[in-house]
C-alpha cells in the first residue's frame, strides 16, 4: 500500500471509531433527557451515567484526531473544507462545546438541573446532523470555485434530497447504536428494568435506521451516479451489512446474547461505512481533491505513520485498562464501587 492509501485508511478507521463512541454518547444524552421527561429517569439514569462518566473525554479525541490527520495527510482539504464550512463548522463547534461542558456541569456540578440536561441532551442530536454536512458535500456538487474564492452553495444544499437523507440517517443511527449498546450494558449490570426501557428504544429505532440507509443509497444514485456505480461494485459489503443488522435486531428482540448483538451492530455500520468510503476513493472531495494529488511530502507522511504506530502502542493498552476497569468490571457496572 502506498502512503496516501494507508493515510486515508487510518483516518477512516478513526472516523469510524468516532461514529461508534460518539453515537453511544450522543444517544445516551438524548435518552437520559427523554426518560426524565417521561418519568423514567430513575430507571435508566444510573446506567447511563456509570458508563459515560469515565469515557466522555475520550470521545472528543477521536474527532480531533481525524481532523488533524486529515490536514496532515491531505492539506488541500483544509483549504476547501475550511473555507466553505465556516458556518456549519462553527455551529457544530458551538454545539459540541455546549454539550461537553453541560454534560460535566450536570454530572459533577448541579445534579438535577433540568436546563443543563436539556442543553446536553438536545445538542447531542443536532451535532450528528451538523457534522454529516461534511459527508454530504464530499459527494461534490455543493461547492463552487471562482478564481480564488470558494463558496458553499447553501440553496443547493438545503434543497438536496441527498443532503436530507444523510441527516435523517445520521440521526436515527445514532439513536439505534446507542440503544443497542446501552441495552447490553444494562443487562451486564443486571438492571433488567433499565434493560427493558432501552431495548424498547433499540427496537423502535431499528426500522427507521434501515429505511434511511436505503434512502441514502437511492439518493446517491440521483446525486452522484459515478459513486453509486462504484458502490454497486462493492455491493457484497452492503448486503453483509444488512445481514448483520437482521441478526442483531433478532437477538435484541429475543433478549439473548446482547453483547454479540451489539458487535453485529458495530459490524453492520463498519461494513456500510467502509463500503461507502472505499467506493468514494480516490476522491476525498469529489471531484476536486483526490488522495493522490494532495498528499503531503513523503517524509512527513512516514513520520505521521510512525507516530501513529507509536501512539497506538501507547493507547491500546490504556484503552484496554479503561475498559477493564469500567466496562468489563462486574462490580463497577453494577454500581457497587464508591465514587
Amino acid at each position: 500500500m502506498n502512503i496516501e492509501l494507508i493515510g486515508i485508511t487510518v483516518l477512516w478507521i478513526f472516523l469510524y471509531g468516532y461514529l461508534i463512541v460518539a453515537s453511544i454518547d450522543f444517544g445516551a444524552g438524548f435518552f437520559s433527557y427523554y426518560s426524565m421527561l417521561t418519568g423514567r429517569k430513575h430507571l435508566v439514569h444510573g446506567i447511563i451515567e456509570r458508563y459515560l462518566s469515565p469515557v466522555w473525554e475520550v470521545t472528543n479525541v477521536f474527532l480531533i484526531f481525524f481532523m488533524v490527520g486529515m490536514v496532515g495527510f491531505f492539506p488541500d482539504t483544509a483549504y476547501y473544507l475550511g473555507t466553505t464550512l465556516l458556518i456549519p463548522g462553527s455551529i457544530a463547534i458551538v454545539l459540541l462545546a455546549i454539550r461537553g461542558s453541560y454534560y460535566a456541569f450536570s454530572t459533577y456540578g448541579s445534579k438535577d438541573n433540568k436546563i443543563y440536561l436539556l442543553l446536553y441532551g438536545a445538542s447531542g442530536l443536532l451535532i450528528p446532523a451538523s457534522l454529516s454536512i461534511v459527508l454530504t458535500i464530499s459527494e461534490g456538487g455543493y461547492i463552487e470555485e471562482k478564481g480564488n474564492q470558494v463558496t458553499l452553495l447553501y440553496s443547493k444544499l438545503f434543497t438536496s434530497p441527498y443532503a436530507w437523507s444523510v441527516v435523517i440517517l445520521s440521526l436515527v443511527s445514532v439513536l439505534f447504536i446507542s440503544a443497542a449498546f446501552l441495552t447490553y450494558y444494562a443487562q451486564k449490570a443486571k438492571d433488567y428494568k433499565a434493560m427493558e426501557v432501552l431495548r424498547g428504544f433499540a427496537i423502535a429505532w431499528s426500522i427507521p435506521t434501515i429505511l434511511s440507509s436505503l434512502l441514502v443509497f437511492f439518493s446517491i444514485q440521483q446525486h452522484n451516479p459515478w459513486h453509486f456505480n462504484r458502490m454497486i461494485e462493492l455491493s457484497w459489503m452492503f448486503v453483509l451489512s444488512l445481514l448483520c443488522f437482521m441478526v442483531a435486531a433478532y437477538l435484541i428482540w429475543i433478549r439473548k446474547r446482547l453483547g454479540l448483538a451489539f458487535l453485529l451492530v458495530m459490524l453492520q455500520f463498519a461494513l456500510a461505512f467502509f463500503g461507502y468510503g472505499a467506493s468514494h476513493l480516490p476522491y476525498i472531495l469529489y471531484p476536486m481533491i483526490s488522495i493522490h494529488e494532495s498528499i503531503t511530502s513523503p517524509s512527513m507522511g512516514i513520520a505521521l505513520i510512525i507516530a501513529f504506530i507509536a501512539g497506538l502502542l501507547l493507547l491500546i493498552p490504556s484503552l484496554f485498562l479503561l475498559m477493564r476497569l469500567f466496562l468489563f468490571d462486574a462490580n463497577y457496572v453494577q454500581g457497587k464501587h464508591g465514587k
Binding site: 469515565p54 469515557v55 484526531f65 488533524v68 507516530a307 493507547l315 485498562l321 479503561l322 476497569l325
Partner: peptide
C-alpha cells in the same frame, strides 16, 4: 503539513491524559 507531526502528537498526549484522568477520578 509542516507541523502535522507535533499537532498529531499533541492529540495523542491528550488522548493519553483523557484515558487516565477518567481512571483517576473514578
Amino acid at each position: 503539513q509542516a507541523i502535522a507531526l507535533p499537532l498529531f502528537l499533541e492529540t495523542f498526549a491528550f488522548f493519553f491524559e483523557a484515558i487516565f484522568l477518567g481512571i483517576y477520578l473514578y
